[in-house]
Design a protein around this nucleic acid. Structure first.
Length: 284
DNA sequence: ACTATTTGACCAAA
DNA sequence: TTTGGTCAAATAGT
């Protein structure tokens, strides 16, 4: 069996929680305002007896640039920040976000973003709930997946939610990401190569073999490949013992900032039984 | 004008 | 009581 990958502490802290829509917290002096929207949409709170649990998973993103952090934490959805809180024992505050479509479409997805104490370049993002909204702008690029209703992140997430909600979740790499391009090995100095490479691959990684076009020549176990837009299969797990669900985003501080993905080579398989490989592409 | 973010207060769970 | 999550008024940005 594929052992788990998520070693992230927060993934345990914030596992599954319970959602219940019935209880309307009597907000004493506060509820006098806002009569509609928000409050009837809330669904948390209350004993773990009613309602079903909502999905929760954690992702880590490494940002190699000091600027534009937010941009690289962008996961394709539009979020609205609704709070920030200092967390006991953590040096960085935790940001609370909810889907910006919440009021419009009732999308209840939320996420929490916290910078890692140990490594300030790492951000732990804990996602809660699945998007019920769809983001038109993040459909698959083109040719691939002409499916009418291409599995959007939300639908995929719902599937995975339904299927393997119980217990631990594998490191799902569902991620929609739009970036310019470019790979930046952390070991090397960041250069300002402006070439915008529209990645020909990775458009369909739903079980199809492909290789990474651009590799860091200096690193062996990690590759940085650039993509214009990609979407990981949510059930992607690496075969073998060492699983890493961390997608790192390497960026430069140049303009326009680049972003790339970090991912180890090797054979991968989806939990569906599909297999494919990240080849070590000829770098020249 | 509107919309998004900030930030202290409020609330529930631990 | 402490802590984490949310609310919402105030503020900032467009």
């Amino acid at each position: 069996m594929v052992s788990m990958n998520m070693g992230h502490p927060s993934s345990q802290i914030l596992r599954s929680m319970v959602a219940t829509g019935t209880s309307q917290p009597p907000r004493s002096s506060r509820s006098h305002r806002s009569e509609n929207s928000d409050k009837d949409l809330r669904e948390n709170r209350s004993p773990p007896s009613k309602r079903r649990t909502i999905a929760s998973w954690t992702k880590q993103i490494r940002v190699y640039s000091k600027m534009g952090v937010e941009g690289y934490l962008d996961d394709g959805y539009s979020w609205r920040k609704y709070g920030q809180k200092g967390i006991h024992g953590a040096k960085y505050p935790r940001g609370y976000y909810r889907c910006a479509e919440r009021n419009v479409r009732g999308c209840m997805a939320t996420k929490q973003v916290q910078r890692s104490d140990q490594d300030p370049t790492v951000f732990e993002i804990n996602y809660r709930g699945n998007h019920s909204c769809t983001m038109a702008s993040y459909e698959f690029p083109s040719s691939v997946n002409p499916e009418n209703q291409e599995p959007t992140l939300s639908t995929i997430a719902q599937q995975q939610n339904a299927e393997q909600q119980p217990s631990d979740r594998v490191g799902f790499l569902d991620q929609s990401f739009a970036s310019s391009s470019l790979h930046y090995p952390l070991t090397s100095t960041i250069k300002t190569e402006e070439q915008v490479l529209l990645s020909p691959v990775i458009e369909n990684n739903m079980g199809k073999n492909f290789s990474c076009p651009y590799v860091s020549p200096s690193t062996s176990e990690t590759t940085y490949f650039s993509v214009n837009s990609f979407r990981w299969h949510p059930k992607l797990a690496r075969s073998g013992s060492e699983i890493n669900d961390v997608i790192s985003v390497a960026t430069s501080s140049t303009n326009p900032p680049f972003a790339g993905l970090e991912f180890p080579f090797g054979e991968f398989h989806t939990l569906d039984g599909q297999n494919f490989t990240f080849d070590n592409p000829p770098f020249s």
